[in-house]
Amino acid sequence: MISPYQQILEPELWLDINSKIVAPNEPISSSVLPPRKILNVTLPTRTTLTSNIITDAHTLEISSWIDKRKSRYTENNPYEFKLLVRGSRDGFDVKTIYEICDKVSNTVIVLKVKDTGEILGGYIPCELDKNKNEWIYSQDSFAFSLRTTNLKNSILSRVYKFDHAIVESPQHSQLFFGNTLCLLGNLKTDNQCHCLQNSFSYDKPIRSEELMDHRRCRFNVEEYELPKNIVTLPFFFPN
């Protein structure tokens, strides 16, 4: 049945299609364009972020987690990461994050732990609000620990208790991913940041037990960055 397509086809093309069905060996008058050329072009690898903490390989891994891919991106990152906040540039108090990122969504926070060199972080798909103190609902947020010389494989921890995904509390200078990654006060000096093993809203801890003994349960941050991930359009090539 081709009658449903009559409204979107040109009259001449419509008549030609009908004629072709009735008499398939007869010529038609409509112009038939040649097929599009397929170009074998290698897309350039995007440098997604000038970072003091993470590499392009790290951003590819984070992008894979955002898209919930089973296999990791190895090139051509679909996202551009635009830096919004950097501790050494803008300040280390958690309130700074809320001031600069007010009403901003789809952000990633990465931080380098002092003394251990761990790279911890989390993805915040929802908007932060500098005037609210509440739990944020999210089905897509996650916390992580990235592979470094001291950690053989990255650790991904996804939220499963969606109504307790993220605590935004600018009034108390707090930003929590459940209790899997808890950021408080001045990240550089207050020694209040921590990650608990018995997470109640994310599926696994992101720090190894040997780095979470009683001496290192709480930690300071050497540097942190908070970029926004921006979807980049695919490359298009003319005929």
Results as ranks from 00 to 15, higher is better:
residue 1 M to N: 11
residue 3 S to N: 10
residue 3 S to T: 15
residue 7 Q to M: 05
residue 9 L to H: 03
residue 13 L to E: 08
residue 15 L to Q: 14
residue 18 N to W: 13
residue 24 P to V: 02
residue 29 S to E: 13
residue 30 S to N: 08
residue 32 V to S: 11
residue 33 L to R: 12
residue 37 K to V: 10
residue 37 K to P: 00
residue 39 L to A: 11
residue 40 N to I: 07
residue 40 N to S: 11
residue 43 L to R: 15
residue 47 T to V: 10
residue 49 L to T: 03
residue 51 S to N: 11
residue 53 I to H: 04
residue 57 A to Y: 07
residue 59 T to P: 05
residue 66 I to A: 06
residue 67 D to Q: 02
residue 69 R to P: 00
residue 85 V to N: 10
residue 89 R to D: 09
residue 93 D to S: 11
residue 94 V to P: 00
residue 97 I to N: 03
residue 97 I to F: 07
residue 102 D to P: 00
residue 102 D to G: 07
residue 104 V to W: 06
residue 105 S to G: 10
residue 106 N to V: 00
residue 108 V to M: 04
residue 110 V to C: 07
residue 111 L to Q: 08
residue 111 L to H: 02
residue 117 G to D: 01
residue 121 G to S: 02
residue 129 D to P: 02
residue 130 K to G: 04
residue 131 N to C: 04
residue 132 K to S: 05
residue 134 E to P: 00
residue 138 S to A: 04
residue 141 S to E: 03
residue 141 S to T: 13
residue 144 F to L: 01
residue 146 L to S: 01
residue 147 R to W: 02
residue 148 T to C: 02
residue 149 T to Q: 15
residue 153 N to M: 05
residue 154 S to C: 03
residue 159 V to R: 06
residue 164 H to G: 02
residue 167 V to S: 07
residue 168 E to V: 01
residue 169 S to Y: 10
residue 172 H to M: 13
residue 182 C to M: 07
residue 184 L to R: 15
residue 187 L to H: 04
residue 187 L to D: 08
residue 189 T to W: 08
residue 190 D to H: 08
residue 194 H to T: 07
residue 195 C to Y: 07
residue 201 S to C: 03
residue 202 Y to N: 04
residue 203 D to N: 15
residue 203 D to F: 01
residue 204 K to I: 04
residue 205 P to F: 03
residue 206 I to K: 02
residue 207 R to E: 02
residue 207 R to T: 09
residue 207 R to C: 04
residue 209 E to W: 08
residue 210 E to A: 04
residue 213 D to G: 05
residue 217 C to D: 07
residue 217 C to N: 12
residue 218 R to P: 00
residue 221 V to G: 06
residue 222 E to D: 15
residue 222 E to A: 10
residue 228 K to G: 13
residue 228 K to C: 12
residue 230 I to K: 10
residue 230 I to W: 05
residue 235 F to M: 09
residue 238 P to N: 09
